[in-house]
Design a protein around this nucleic acid. Structure first.
Lengths: 343, 343
DNA sequence: CAATATTGTGGAAGCCTTTCCATAGCGCTT
DNA sequence: AAGCGCTATGGAAAGGCTTCCACAATATTG
């Protein structure tokens, strides 16, 4: 059905090798032959067959993207960075959006399928058991983003430090009763953020109150979502009616949005009743005036692609680890130094 | 480097044809031979080579998804429907997220490349000139979502009717000065929504005020984004300080969020000062209590995949067009019948 | 028990490229 | 005019699979 190099070769009265050389502008070819062939192939609207090319070259020009997808807006923004960069480089993206945790293995297996992709970008999840060795055996270039393994290139955010900075900021504003709403501790970033929170409290000699700490475990997935935030905040408020915390550090913006909603339903506002500090700085944070810790999402996407290409071109160097520090973005939900909170 | 069917054939003392039949559970093969081969191939951890398979079968098990990506959260939700459904069917997704309108052609060309994908899902954009005929020549199954062309299967939303219902609802609540903030009229949905808005006004014998109508053209892309909504609302308010509209129908939730922000910055609230009605019902609408027209996004994604498969299996029937009616979701930003607005 | 039908198997051909190797043809040199 | 070195070219081989055709080995029939 389609036009092949054989058709062109026949038409131009040359061999298929010559056609191939013309199309791939190989040096060893006479300029006029080349032009003639290019002209003919244009006239016949020739299109190389992607899979035949891939098979012969052992190269797919495609990379796999495996990322959580349970409506965590964080990823939408990273995705933009990846998309822009990868398009520049002439590659395509095979998207594997994980909606339930058990899909991870399935997707990894698919991406590992021989000859399917030239590399993998793996996001924010723990590499399931055994896949580290399989990936190494296959020598499939892999970059981890927002998660860590010593044997693979990785890009992470200083979660512990970010949480520490966030909490210390709340301390500095004068809050004493500082709670935290976290995602599932199965998640590495969630654990680190918890540690940072605890460290800041200790350093400020503030007590840690079990009753102001909540893991949003109720939900599907890992708890990094709005419903989980809503639920966790509802519980804390309802159980501590008489003695509400003054501030909350929340492990993601999307949870913070849920939490703010729970407050609103109970006629509480931020920062007047409870101050709220999030994590991520998703695009919507700006809208609702959420004070938060910014992760450089777009840049992380771009860098991930760059690292992957570096490794695709030369897989022969030790793993490198890059880490970004989140920065505090002050908006309204924590009050400001001038307009000091009540306490 | 990898294990091939030749290796397995040698190991099992059979021909390569037999190995292939065993792996693809072809009917004409003895059960015990088959089991033996499967056992061996498991032991050698055989993995078929995706591209070789694709080349031989003339089938990629991959579909291309071309969709606008300029942070319009609408698509994130459609994407989930697509992803879930397509995974069930054993297919993979090649994602082409359009960030600037000039990328559309580039992506279409890539997706059209022979043998790269088995079908295309094309979203919310006008098919660039000439591609309709090219797609038909190539016989590449294509489904249009949220846009229309008589020669291709499509799934659309009754934009005109949705806008009409929305505006009529505002009329019914007693608002007289009803404005609209729209996206670029290059977008088909935007045009239809404008028509519905006008029709409802006329029917109610309410005047159309040029000064309460605004196209958010300022921005990058098509205007379906938060900044555009913010800017448009800011302008309308600032130019009509003395005579503000009472209500606004806004062509997407994400713009409505921007608009609400612009109001907030000017100490105006919804519905007390101006009622706001959006379109889409993205997940966040619930959060901020936005009254809006719901599009069944997840279901549209699922249906799109189903249609595409239908056509991949049998390309031999006339194009079918499905259309959904949006439904009104009443929340808080328009007030309610009980708590009537001032006017 | 021979003749025929059925089932299972081997392996060549085909899918469409790229790449390598051999060779034809050309212009130089001597 | 013969010999040499280049350059450009043709086309086989390779990449790894599916599928078709031919044939061998059974099973079925009268």
């Amino acid at each position: 059905m389609g036009v092949t190099i054989y058709d062109i070769a026949r038409e131009a009265n040359v061999g298929i090798g010559t056609v191939s050389r013309a199309l791939n502008n190989h040096p060893k070819i006479a300029a006029k032959t080349k032009n003639r062939i290019l002209e003919i192939s244009r006239r016949m609207s020739y299109q190389p067959h992607a899979y035949a090319q891939g098979l012969a070259k052992r190269k797919t020009n495609t990379i796999a993207l495996i990322m959580p997808f349970f409506t965590n807006y964080f990823f939408v923004e990273v995705l933009q960075g990846i998309q822009d960069k990868i398009t520049d480089l002439g590659y395509d993206i095979m998207l594997y959006g994980v909606n339930q945790t058990n899909q991870v293995e399935e997707y990894l297996k698919r991406a590992l399928q021989k000859g399917k992709v030239d590399g993998i970008l793996f996001f924010s999840m723990k590499l399931p058991d055994g896949f580290d060795t399989r990936l190494k055996e296959l020598q499939l270039p892999t970059i981890l983003v927002d998660t860590f393994h010593p044997d693979f290139d990785s890009i992470t955010v200083q979660n512990e430090e970010g949480a520490y900075v966030a909490t210390r900021y709340l301390v500095k504003l004068g809050y004493k009763k500082i709670g935290m709403i976290n995602a599932s501790l199965d998640s590495e970033p969630a654990r680190m953020r918890y540690n940072g929170y605890r460290r800041a409290l200790e350093e400020a000699k503030l007590p840690f109150h079990e009753r102001y700490f909540r893991i949003s475990k109720h939900s599907k997935a890992d708890g990094f979502n709005r419903e989980a935030g809503y639920q966790a905040m509802s519980e804390v408020i309802d159980k501590n009616r008489e003695d509400l915390p003054e501030a909350f550090f929340i492990s993601s913006d999307i949870q913070a949005i849920g939490a703010l909603n729970a407050m609103k339903d109970r006629k509480l506002t931020a920062p007047e009743d409870i101050a709220i500090l999030g994590f991520d700085d998703i695009e919507l944070a700006k809208h609702i005036g959420l004070t938060t810790m910014r992760q450089p999402m777009y840049q992380m996407g771009v860098l991930a692609v760059e690292k992957l290409f570096h490794r695709i071109q030369n897989n022969d160097f030790p793993p490198s680890h890059t880490t970004f520090s989140p920065t505090l973005i002050v908006r309204e939900t924590c009050g400001t130094e001038k307009q000091q909170p009540k306490s």
